[in-house]
Design a protein around this nucleic acid. Structure first.
Length: 764
DNA sequence: CGCTCATAAT
């Protein structure tokens, strides 16, 4: 972006020329002009045309032939140009205007500037403007407004500076347009300066100006300034209220937003459809269905429930609050839908996928999102950046790489890949699907990179065990001047941990605290503890935990216990387990870890103690689920599942693989039986061999997928170390790349190694 | 009065 000038407010004392009419030439009689207005004169309005209105099309045809028309026709002709957005027509008219010398009349040339701008030709407008003998504040304003319209806010600002320098007085129209330019530039500094001009000209208290300021500050991310601007508006109208309420939503202060909505009602300001949709969106954010329903009834009361945006909001409210059937029937009842309707459906299902506790539910939601996306494509409407970013999130969640690739192609074709959110979602999708090279490619090809895209890529490298690249990326990011956040540092520290770079980890940990003033949270400590544990430095790990200024949580203890188990320090493990049990952990995986530890040590009393605690704490039964997607079908597996027709083949394959693996040195770990009751019924009379769900899914993939293709499996809980170890052998024996994404991380098995660093601290 | 400026849903 070109550097922008400062808008010095000092200098010649300006006074707002309140009466713009003085500047307006009246060479064409008012009544003549009126007769060419778009709306036909009404019978009772007394606006009889003094010149017989000539059809604008006919007039334009005459001009094209070179025949002149009366100069009074220029206004409707230009009006017609705006409607058709036809640049050539504008040029024809322009030529005639010059021929007749009419361009010296300021209002005609102002119209021409406006027409060029509305035809998307700012260059033509500017060229004309620069040669004008006469220009007034309206002409200047038309140019500024036009630049904003054509997404050239820098030029709008530069023209405003020239306007001020030329001694012209800006009007409220002018300052409103300049404020829009500041908004487009997200420049709160420029905005404040324009605010200064408004104060100076005494128009700050005008409602529309206050509203604009309120909106500007909100869009620039300062809710505080926005609220201040709002409070200073003496005569707040419904727009003022709507602006501040939606500002609260945009800036994440739902509580204040809802309070202000209540204030508005108690001050007897009647909300309109804009206000109500904003309020509904606040209810969505806090998932408050009962409040949402009240606002729904307001919509009916104020008669705007039939408006599409309102319908969209209400549908989205039900969807976000989990009332899928209600949302669905509202959707089906809609006779007209907009792209936003489709997008709301996709985004709603995508969110449900992410929040679903149950993996079956998650998958179902994701699948619904795909169905909606498909229907959108067939409806004749074109997906936009919102559709693409939502559906790419769904692909990430389901590891649906085939669909993801198709959508990638569609984003290129439609041009939406240039959008920062879409391209970030694409990087994320490839990372989550285990395609680090495609992610890198997508990242490199981005036109601009934000904190989110850098962090996403960095985390991708880190999760794939490519620590050097992750850290290199971090340094590049700092070099470009992007300020890392908390999440970025989680990526950096986990990369260090992965590669055993203890000194670097400590260096970055301190950098985070001292240079960036970011307070370390549990995740950061978890990375550090994980690192010491990986190194077998259990004492250092425990010492680090003692340094924390909060109590270790379930995650920290789990890492310590898993580490003790891996490094055979059973006593320390038992000690840590006692501390963990005092916390009454919530996560089912924590219990499996503890059970596994006690089972390996054959401490059966502790095993039954943990099982009892699980019952007391109402920890549900252990459900082990995996799924694999082949073509457009998804196949689910449970532990020891024998439901599938190919079961016999799958079990035989697993047996033979395990046998071969044993020859290569595979030793099974004893681990907890993961079948739940439902599964046990199904596996009555089954062979002795037990398999967790991911092994079944992998076997299914090996049988049904073309040789050499990558196998991608999603698992709902963390892999156990026995499965992890055996899959490493499978990758050698079958010469396949196998990707398992479990609830904690991504495992990419290749040639007997796993990208997680072959270390079990994050395994059960 | 030729710039028609300010608010919403994904």
């Amino acid at each position: 972006m070109a550097s922008l000038p400062s808008l010095a407010i000092s200098g010649t004392p300006h006074k707002l020329d309140a009466d713009v009419r003085k500047l307006s030439p009246a060479s064409v009689p008012l009544e003549k002009r009126l007769s060419y207005q778009r709306s036909p004169p009404t019978a009772d309005g007394g606006r009889e045309a003094s010149v017989q209105p000539l059809d604008a099309r006919e007039a334009l045809a005459l001009l094209r032939e070179g025949t002149g028309v009366e100069s009074a026709f220029y206004v409707p002709l230009l009006q017609q140009c705006i409607e058709t957005r036809s640049l050539p027509d504008a040029q024809v008219i322009h030529a005639h205007i010059i021929k007749t010398g009419t361009h010296e009349e300021a209002f005609i040339s102002t119209s021409l500037v406006d027409v060029y701008m509305k035809c998307g030709a700012p260059h033509h407008a500017r060229k004309l403007f620069d040669t004008l003998p006469q220009r007034n504040v309206v002409t200047w304003t038309a140019l500024i407004t036009g630049y904003v319209r054509n997404s050239e806010p820098e030029n709008a600002i530069l023209i405003f500076v020239r306007l001020v320098e030329s001694g012209c007085y800006p009007t409220n129209y002018t300052l409103g347009a300049v404020l829009s330019a500041c908004c487009a530039l997200y420049s709160i500094e420029l905005g404040r300066q324009v605010h200064g001009y408004m104060v100076k000209y005494g128009i700050e208290s005008e409602t529309s100006m206050g509203n604009s300021l309120c909106s500007l500050y909100s869009k620039c991310g300062s809710l505080e300034s926005s609220v201040k601007a709002f409070r200073r508006i003496p005569n707040k109208n419904v727009i003022s209220w709507t602006t501040i309420i939606s500002a609260c939503g945009d800036n994440g202060d739902t509580e204040l937003g809802l309070t202000l909505f209540a204030d508005m009602l108690s001050e007897d300001v009647e909300p309109n459809e804009y206000t109500l949709t904003s309020a509904l969106s606040l209810c969505c954010m806090v998932q408050d269905l009962s409040l949402g329903k009240q606002i729904h009834s307001f919509c009916i009361k104020f008669g705007c429930e039939s408006q599409l945006p309102v319908k969209n909001s209400i549908m989205y409210l039900y969807l976000k609050c989990g009332e899928i059937d209600e949302a669905r029937s509202l959707f089906d009842e809609m006779d007209t839908v907009s792209l936003i309707t489709w997008n709301a459906m996709i985004a709603g299902h995508a969110q449900m996928m992410n929040l679903a506790k149950d993996d079956m539910a998650a998958h179902h939601s994701g699948f619904e999102a795909f169905k909606v996306f498909q229907k959108l494509n067939r409806s004749g409407m074109k997906p936009d950046l919102y559709s693409f970013s939502s559906i790419l999130t769904v692909c990430s969640g389901l590891l649906a790489i085939e669909q993801g690739e198709q959508i990638h192609a569609q984003t290129i074709k439609s041009g939406y890949l240039s959008d920062i959110v879409v391209s970030s979602a694409l990087v994320n999708m490839y990372n989550k699907c285990g395609c680090i090279d495609d992610a890198t490619k997508a990242f490199v090809e981005m036109s601009t990179r934000t904190l989110i895209s850098w962090t996403s890529m960095l985390t991708g490298y880190s999760q794939h065990g490519r620590s050097k690249e992750a850290i290199q990326l971090f340094e590049d990011m700092r070099l470009v001047g992007i300020r890392p956040n908390q999440i970025t540092f989680v990526g950096v520290l986990s990369a260090c941990s992965h590669a055993g770079m203890v000194d670097e980890a400590e260096y970055y940990f301190n950098m985070m605290k001292n240079e960036y003033g970011i307070k370390p949270v549990m995740d950061h400590y978890a990375c550090m503890v994980d690192m010491f544990v990986r190194q077998g430095r259990l004492e250092d790990a425990f010492a680090f935990v003692k340094k924390m200024d909060f109590e270790p949580n379930e995650i920290i203890w789990s890492i310590l216990i898993a580490g003790c188990r891996s490094h055979g320090n059973v006593d320390l493990g038992f000690h840590a387990a006692e501390r963990l049990l005092e916390l009454k952990p919530k996560g089912i995986e924590t219990y499996i870890l503890l059970l596994n530890m006690y089972i390996s040590a054959e401490r059966w009393q502790d095993v039954s103690r943990v099982r009892k605690l699980m019952k007391d704490e109402n920890i549900g039964s252990i459900r082990d689920r995996s799924w694999i997607s082949i073509k457009d079908k998804v196949y689910f597996f449970r532990a020891n599942d024998r439901c599938h027709p190919q079961s016999a083949e799958m079990y035989a394959l697993l047996e033979s693989l395990l046998q071969k693996a044993t020859c290569l040195g595979y030793v099974p770990y004893k681990s907890v039986e993961l079948s739940d009751k439902e599964d046990e019924e199904n596996s009555v009379g089954s062979a002795a061999a037990t398999h967790h769900s991911e092994r079944l899914a992998i076997a299914f993939g090996l049988i049904n997928m073309t040789e050499g293709t990558t196998i991608r499996v999603v698992k709902n809980i963390t892999m156990c170390r026995d499965c992890h170890n055996s899959v490493k052998f499978f990758s050698i024996l079958t010469k396949r790349e196998i990707i398992v994404r479990d609830s904690k991380r991504l495992h990419r098995f290749r040639d007997g190694r796993c990208s997680c660093g072959d270390f079990g601290a994050l395994l059960l």
